[in-house]
Design a protein around this nucleic acid. Sequence first.
DNA 1: CTGCGCACTTGACAAATGTCAAGACATACT
DNA 2: AGTATGTCTTGACATTTGTCAAGTGCGCAG
Lengths: 205, 205
Amino acid sequence: MTVKQGATRTRDRKSLERRDQLAESALKTLGEFGYAHTSLRDIAANSEFSHGVVHYYFADKTELITYCVRYYKAQCATRYDAIVASATTAEELRLGFADKLCETLVEDSSMHRLWYDMRTQAMFDPALQPDVLMIDSTLEEMIWRVLSRYAALSGQSLTIDSPTAYAMLDGVFERALLHHLAADGECVEWLRSRALGLLPTLLGA
Amino acid sequence: MTVKQGATRTRDRKSLERRDQLAESALKTLGEFGYAHTSLRDIAANSEFSHGVVHYYFADKTELITYCVRYYKAQCATRYDAIVASATTAEELRLGFADKLCETLVEDSSMHRLWYDMRTQAMFDPALQPDVLMIDSTLEEMIWRVLSRYAALSGQSLTIDSPTAYAMLDGVFERALLHHLAADGECVEWLRSRALGLLPTLLGA
DNA sequence: CTGCGCACTTGACAAATGTCAAGACATACT
DNA sequence: AGTATGTCTTGACATTTGTCAAGTGCGCAG
């Protein structure tokens, strides 16, 4: 009995592991060269397999990309949860959040620019929109958990809504990322000070 | 006497007009398909010329793209200046700015997503960074003119710095654009209400 | 041991793409 | 008129890319 379903393997655990393995190679490559300059051969070259294997596990390039987008989500949506859980004062949460923000800006800069790349691609390709919008919501909720915890620890209430708060913070982070990748050394501290300043601002006026 | 300079024409006015003409076709095409899926032949097909003409006026694809980025700047940096100049009250400026923001979100959505595409490409390609950073500064100044005028008309002072204000507003606009292109009908009014709400917030606490 | 099915490789094909040389066409100058 | 020069087209090239068919090796069931 064949295990194929449509043109791609999806059933057994071995296949899922391979798909994840390829997704990781793809994310690594996409984060390095960007969506526009990454071919399936580049992705395979960054794995331990040959270029044909991609088409064995994925029907086409689009299926690989969308799978990667979904796979990406699992890695990034819990980034601040440890700090939210461990912080006992508003100040501790504020400092920890700003630190983590600056840390991931530097350490995961390739993954972040890939995310902005994919989100922008979704503006052109409707096929990417469902997944991208879902991830954006997940990230928004991640930020909202930080903010509502910060408000609770401060004994204040939030006057801003979740989408707006996320969008503003995201805009600040995207700007910091662009300048960081353009070799602007000051932007890390800029991001830290903006994050530190923004949290109190987002509470009641 | 030949007018060639290096591999491309740059001197006389006729050549500059052709370059602008091609840049317009390129921007139109790029706004439609995105950077990743636009070829020089697509661009030429959207003009009245054949595909070879691109290489007659531009040394290579990179030179065309960077020229387009620069050309783009001239079109967008004065979008709100008329409202800034004509508004006589803070409320008039606030409403006019929000209206213009929503109007351009819908009318110029292809150009906006192209801008976000190019800005993201700059995260991968250092060759684009100087132009992109310069345009970003120009846009930031455009927003700053609105905000400082709004503060003056309100008789209040701005407590936020220019980069942060621009980054936050840009994040809100980018989110609205993504949802607008994903056929979310409510996001225009969402953008309007956020813009209306944000202007007073950006003044003193 | 033998054959079968799965996982993967190899090689190939067609289409797309950046680049560019060669020529056609037009306009201006002598 | 004839020539030269600038402008644009045509066709071609090498390469890249997505796709896929055919084949190889390996483990396992019978």
